[in-house]
């Protein structure tokens, strides 16, 4: 939560913190982003490293890797997306409950990377809306953490609804109903 999101003065409010529902919801969401590890190639190794004790992604409330899309908030696409796998990536994205975010980790997921060939989708943003792109081949775990912190920043600044544009169409999801 940013400072302006809450008012707290122990002399005035006692043990009560006054805030807005959006700010609380965003604060909760941004600090418990459960990732769906879409590990498709070598980048997934760095994703695993980020989950390990040395880099410790649980400092950000993201250590709960959910292999079921029904329980995940953020799909981390770590690796080369082939056309054959693209279908699966999109289906898993569709199975995730709103609100959901996508992080394209590494050159392959962002643009197809060095695989300029018949088999590779040239960027996962062709099939799912991507919130954060992380450069690198592979990105170091620090870079992934930096990207995830940017995602937290983005979640914290979301308004009453979640708006994202994909291929010219705007998809809107209400945060507080």
């Amino acid at each position: 939560m940013v400072k302006s999101d809450f008012g707290y003065n122990s002399k005035v409010e006692g043990e009560v913190i006054v805030t807005r529902a959006d700010a609380v919801v965003n604060w909760v969401r941004s600090n418990s982003v459960w990732p769906m590890p879409m590990g498709l190639a070598c980048c997934a190794i760095e994703l695993m490293a980020a989950g390990g004790s040395r880099f410790d992604i649980s400092r950000f409330g993201m250590e709960v890797m959910r292999f079921s899309p029904r329980q995940a908030d953020c799909m981390i696409v770590a690796g080369t997306v082939t056309y054959k796998m693209a279908e699966v990536v999109r289906r898993i994205y569709d199975q995730m409950a709103e609100p959901k975010w996508v992080v394209a980790m590494g050159a392959c997921a962002s643009t197809g990377g060095m695989y300029r060939s018949y088999s590779t989708l040239q960027g996962v943003d062709n099939i799912v809306p991507v919130d954060i792109y992380i450069s690198g081949c592979p990105p170091r775990p620090e870079a992934l953490l930096d990207g995830m912190m940017l995602l937290q920043e983005k979640i914290r600044n979301e308004g009453g609804s979640l708006r994202r544009t994909f291929r010219g169409r705007t998809v809107e999801t209400k945060i507080v109903s």
Partner: peptide, 24 residues
């Protein structure tokens, strides 16, 4: 090497995304 344009493997995903298998 770049490939030849063909339809996306899954028709329903292609419908939502408008994606084709394109030459790289």
């Amino acid at each position: 090497l770049a490939g030849i344009e063909v339809p996306f493997p899954a028709a329903d995903v292609a419908e939502v995304t408008g994606q084709k298998v394109e030459p790289a």
